[in-house]
Computed example of a mutant assay.
Amino acid sequence: MSATIPFTDGLMLRYLRPANVKALLLPATDPERERVRSLFASVYDPSFLDVRTVESVDVVRTEFQSAVHASLSLHGSWDKSIPTTEQARATVEIPATPQVHWIDMSLETVVAVKAAPAGGLLASADAEAWAAAGGAGAPQGEFERPYQLQYEDPPPFDPAAPARRLPLRVSTLFFDRLDLVDALRRLSQAKRAVDAASPQPEVHDGGTMLASSAWLAVFPATATDEPSQATEQLVGDLLATQGFVAVFETAP
């Protein structure tokens, strides 16, 4: 491949091959499959779905350069006093073309996971124990609920149980240079647009899904020495605080 091909264009050509997409999600250097686990945890709340192992990832569909149009919501009100009649008029200017966010690569995947139950069943509701424990600090007022709820311990994780197959959308942005300000802004804006344009996340395992999609940011890897590796780790840590996963790839 010619070295004159831009980094982002070269990535699209690279990921035309399903094996390269699979290697992006499940790299050989990641035997514990932490990358997929991080992507999964950004959509499925870990407090309700305690994933212990990732068994497999199947890529169902790959799409390049998907357009997501930013939505615009308008709210207003009109009041009328009786018996007099009042009229209010307002002028609102809306851009003819809404802002478009481009997703460099969208993946529809199915992830097979083995998960431990994250919560137990309700065992008892004890009014006296709650009053004794709360004392003067117990909640007061019209909606007081003087009960202390006791839950059973969740059943232990069974590694022999069948894996669960769950859908996971992965939205990927390509960056031709390491510019963290630009990357975080683009990722945040695109995430908001996708969440707004997608159906409301379903309730799963007792908790609401955190987002419509997991997000992957691909940057060029510049070197293999220790300072560069440390920088890549710090970049990954920074993006993780915002729910994104960073990947560094060599130029195609």
Rank of each mutant, 00 (worst) to 15 (best):
S42C: 04
Q200D: 13
Q148P: 00
A23S: 14
L39G: 06
S2Y: 00
L210G: 02
T172M: 10
E86H: 07
V181G: 12
R164F: 02
S2A: 08
T250R: 13
D205H: 12
V170F: 04
L210P: 02
W102E: 00
S47L: 12
F64Y: 04
S71A: 14
A240R: 14
L184C: 03
F219T: 08
S212D: 13
V245I: 09
Q148R: 15
I82A: 09
P31R: 06
D182R: 12
L234N: 08
E232C: 08
E55P: 02
E55G: 11
T208R: 14
R145Q: 14
P117N: 04
T97M: 09
L239E: 10
T172V: 15
A115F: 11
D30Q: 03
P139H: 05
D58T: 14
F175V: 01
R164A: 14
R52D: 02
L180R: 10
V247K: 06
D153H: 10
E34Q: 12
R177T: 14
R145M: 11
P117T: 08
L168D: 05
L184A: 09
A3S: 13
A223G: 13
P139Q: 07
L72Q: 13
A183N: 02
E34V: 13
L26T: 13
R52M: 08
A19P: 00
E55M: 05
P18S: 12
F244Y: 15
E142F: 14
T91V: 10
T91N: 10
S171Q: 09
K22Q: 15
A67S: 11
R61P: 01
L216C: 06
Q87V: 11
D45Q: 08
E63G: 05
A221F: 01
V245M: 06
Q140P: 01
A3R: 13
L72H: 12
S228Q: 12
F248S: 06
F143T: 12
V43S: 02
P18L: 11
W130S: 13
T84S: 09
L216M: 11
T231P: 00
F248C: 10
A129I: 01
L166T: 04
L39D: 07
T241I: 03
V57M: 10
T250K: 14
I5S: 02
R177V: 09
S106C: 07
P201T: 06
E152L: 11
T85C: 01
P199M: 03
G76A: 11
G243V: 07
Y151M: 07
T29L: 03
A246H: 08
A70W: 00
L26R: 07
E202W: 01
S188L: 04
L24D: 07
V54D: 01
A123I: 01
E249Q: 14
R177M: 05
F48L: 07
A112S: 15
S188Q: 11
D126G: 08
D158S: 08
V54I: 15
Q99G: 01
L121A: 15
D195V: 03
F244W: 10
E232I: 05
G76R: 04
D153E: 13
A23P: 03
P155I: 06
L149E: 13
I5P: 00
Y151G: 07
S228E: 15
A240G: 10
D205N: 11
L238H: 01
G120C: 08
P154W: 03
E93P: 00
H101D: 00
Q65G: 02
A193Q: 01
G76K: 04
S213L: 05
Y15Q: 09
V111E: 07
A183D: 01
